[in-house]
Design a protein around this nucleic acid. Structure first.
Lengths: 246, 246
DNA sequence: GTAGAATTCAAACAATCGTTTCAAACGCAT
DNA sequence: ATGCGTTTGAAACGATTGTTTGAATTCTAC
């Protein structure tokens, strides 16, 4: 037994876990699912990684470090050839989001699965996930925000922060792609073409980033009713609530 | 005992569950947490709702029905006073996203909690959640998409679908707000002003929606390395992987 | 007040979770 | 081949999960 075929056990576990986490979520995916898919023993996860949490952390770390490395290299390249002059916002946006979307377009290497997972994770409730996400991303984000501020001297930094945040959301949903979109659209959209998605997303992002500043001190609330909680009108239609089994 | 103070048991359960789901997620939140927070007996959830899944469904239903009702009313109002002429895209966007953001600004009625939960749920892995999300939203989404298509006759419908999707993502992150933003920004942004957030988001959305169409048949891949999975370089720094307890 | 339905309560249910255990199998230097 | 550290294997661990049970309690109508 134990042919140790091509990849060693930790790699197999990471790859299997990545696919399952996308499908079922971090919490709902069990170690038994993962080890079964990876064709390794159940105890292998705790042996090689120490715990499920450590497995998740390592899973994100190996991809995020590569992703942010590429982003910073791209920004360095642009900075070098700009020779001190401020970059165009579209260049900065492309360096940050373009690398991510191109990674998401990589279906065979697993990048697609990971990016779908990552987009969801920025709003993940689990505290430990957000903590190492922040640790991995903070340096990169800081450099890109600084570049954007320098690139858009007429836009207040706080406004840039928010728009960067909005762009992250748009990218996240763009990568989640057909999953959530199939809810909304009766037609099935073709999201297999990563380059086309990239082009769509990029023009949207630039349009939003360069939009005219909001007139903050304008018309207050319009004729909209107060958004209170809807009192639940009636719960069940038919019979009483006696022992609602099955 | 059993003072049955102000709200009856099902309401108390729904309100408590809503707050806990935002904080810990749908799966990670236990019925014992919920019933303890609502100060009701553990069995009350299964008695009144039938199961945890049914509780979640009812929780989303009571808010979503109200939300989509308001959206459609707003669109009806605009349609009526437009008298057949196509609406401005900003009007349509405001009718759809404005109602949501204003609901998210309602912190006392629980709307804030729910909208944070909703934004995350569109990318939720759990199948049963997405199914009734689709059921609740499909009619509303269809009407708004039709309005947008009519409002933007020069933009291909498929492009509008995608941009609508991007807008949903931006709104989701906008509402998640300071949670995810605190990862990215060292400064603490003030997201307490719902009207200011609304203004920021709306100008971003309109800018993205009205952005020039991407030149789809342009430059192909640039000088970016192939986004393969990074081979995990080294896992642990120090000692061996023998019994890594604690 | 009393009967009967609706609700609440404490306790237990089977199932499944992440984790641990310890012996067996393996890899590899000598 | 021998010895030893590394990895795998099957089985069990305690804890926690959603759910169910059946008796007590409260509520409502007569």
């Amino acid at each position: 037994m134990s042919q140790n075929q091509t990849a060693e056990t930790p790699q197999r576990i990471l790859d299997a876990a990545e696919a399952l986490f996308v499908e079922f979520g971090l919490e709902a995916t069990t170690l038994r699912q993962i080890t079964a898919a990876a064709q390794v023993n159940l105890a292998a996860v705790n042996y090689h990684f120490g715990s499920k949490e450590a497995l998740i952390a390592e899973l994100f770390r190996r991809r995020l470090s590569w992703l942010n490395e590429q982003r910073l290299q791209q920004l360095d390249r642009l900075d070098a050839q700009a020779q001190g002059r401020p970059l165009k916002p579209s260049q900065i946006v492309d360096a940050f989001f373009g690398v991510a979307v191109r990674m998401a377009a990589d279906r065979v290497g697993g990048g697609h699965n990971f990016m779908r997972l990552l987009g969801r994770t920025y709003t993940e409730p689990a505290a430990f996930v957000r903590s190492f996400l922040a640790a991995e991303d903070s340096k990169t984000i800081a450099r890109f925000k600084a570049a954007l501020i320098k690139s858009l001297p007429d836009v207040p930094p706080e406004e840039i922060f928010w728009r960067f945040h909005f762009m992250l959301g748009a990218m996240s949903y763009a990568i989640s792609g057909a999953d959530a979109l199939s809810i909304l659209a009766d037609v099935s959209l073709d999201d297999s073409d990563g380059e086309a998605l990239m082009a769509r997303l990029m023009s949207f992002l630039i349009g939003g980033l360069r939009a005219p500043l909001p007139a903050l001190l304008t018309n207050l609330q319009q004729a909209t009713p107060t958004p209170r909680a809807a009192r639940a009108p009636k719960r069940r239609s038919g019979g009483a609530a006696l022992q609602p089994h099955s």
